[in-house]
């Protein structure tokens, strides 16, 4: 069966997410938010519980487990590189975050477990698999650093909103209909 490749605008809507099937490829343009920090995820749960205000609006955002290194030069943030980190260590927190913020696209590498698959199915969301060791390719797609949240944290833990153009292709590894390639392959 031939692979379908979709060119989509991000943040992904629930409608677009539901149009995808596990195994499809996606080329991404638009706005995404990235972080590689477990402490960041705990802090976001705190925001949902009213502990502190959100550092940026993440409702309906496309949020990926990607670590990045950016530096301020001549008054603008320049991104050196970006690459996925292993998503499974966020398993316990992701269902609350997916449901709480209506995330229609999440991703990284390594996949998420069944409770996350169910949360994605309920909100109409997908998990996108980025190539690990793909820094040179992923970084080429970054056009601009739009904003950075929680600058008090380590570089790769911060929330970074980016404008991207033709990022990918990435693989739809978990679709919005409850199908996970990781479960089919037996890898989770």
């Amino acid at each position: 069966m031939a692979i379908t490749t979709h060119r989509l605008t991000f943040p992904l809507t629930a409608e677009s997410a539901r149009s995808l099937r596990a195994g499809d490829m996606v080329i991404m343009s638009g706005e995404i938010v990235v972080t590689a920090g477990l402490p960041t995820h705990h802090r976001l749960i705190g925001c949902l519980n009213g502990v502190e205000p959100m550092p940026m609006d993440l409702n309906g955002a496309s949020v990926f487990h990607l670590g990045s290194y950016s530096e301020e030069k001549d008054g603008t943030l320049q991104l050196h590189y970006i690459n996925p980190t292993t998503s499974t260590r966020f398993n316990a927190l992701m269902p609350t975050l997916i449901s709480g913020f209506n995330w229609h696209a999440v991703g990284g590498k390594g996949g998420l477990d069944r409770p996350c698959v169910e949360a994605l199915r309920q909100v109409g969301g997908v998990y996108l698999s980025f190539l690990g060791g793909g820094a040179a390719l992923h970084t080429q797609a970054i056009r601009r650093v739009i904003e950075v949240g929680w600058s008090d944290m380590l570089m790769h833990y911060r929330l970074v909103r980016l404008q991207v153009e033709d990022m990918g292709p990435v693989t739809v590894a978990i679709d919005a209909h409850g199908v996970s390639l990781y479960e089919i392959s037996g890898a989770t």
Binding site: I3, Y81, T85, G132, L137, Q140, T171
Partner: peptide, 25 residues
């Protein structure tokens, strides 16, 4: 899908070597 991923891996390694950037963050 796996062939596609393997080919992207090879492209990624070549891109890093040619631009002398990191393969992985």
């Amino acid at each position: 899908t796996a062939r596609h991923t393997l080919q992207t891996m090879i492209r990624s390694a070549e891109a890093a070597e040619q631009s002398w950037r990191f393969v992985c963050s």
